[in-house]
C-alpha cells in the first residue's frame, strides 16, 4: 500500500508542499488541507508542479477547506480530486501510513 501525505500550509508562504512533492513516491497520495488548498488553484506560480504531480500521484484537496476560502471545483487544476472529511478518513484507512508535512 502506498503512503498518504497531508500538507496544510500555503505554498506561497511555506516550503512544506514543495518538500512533500519532492519526497513522495509515485503512486502515493497527497491531500491538501487547511491553507494548503490554495496550492490546488489554477494559474499560480506552483501550478506547473501540481500538474506534474497529478500525472503520477493521486492529488486531492479537502473540499470544505476550499469552499471555506471562497473557491470551488471550477478553480482547481484538472486532475485534482475533491474529498470531504469522510473521504479524508477513507484515504487514511486505505494507505499504509500517513505523513503530515508541517
Amino acid at each position: 500500500m502506498a503512503m498518504l501525505h497531508t500538507v496544510n500550509k500555503s505554498p506561497f508562504e511555506r516550503n512544506s508542499l514543495n518538500s512533500c512533492l519532492t519526497k513522495s513516491k509515485e503512486g502515493s497520495t497527497i491531500l491538501l488541507i487547511e491553507d494548503a488548498v490554495v496550492g490546488a488553484l489554477k494559474g499560480t506560480i506552483v501550478a506547473d508542479k501540481l500538474t506534474a504531480a497529478v500525472a503520477n500521484k493521486n492529488v486531492c484537496v479537502l473540499g470544505s477547506d476550499l469552499n471555506t476560502r471562497g473557491f470551488t471545483e471550477a478553480d482547481i487544476i484538472d486532475g485534482i480530486k475533491i474529498v470531504d472529511y469522510a473521504g479524508f478518513v477513507d484515504l487514511v484507512a486505505e494507505h499504509s501510513n500517513v505523513q503530515s508535512w508541517l
Binding site: N97, Q99, L102
Partner: peptide
C-alpha cells in the same frame, strides 16, 4: 518513509 508504520513529523 514509505516503509514506516508510524511517521511523526514536526
Amino acid at each position: 518513509m514509505d516503509e514506516q508504520d508510524v511517521v511523526i513529523s514536526s
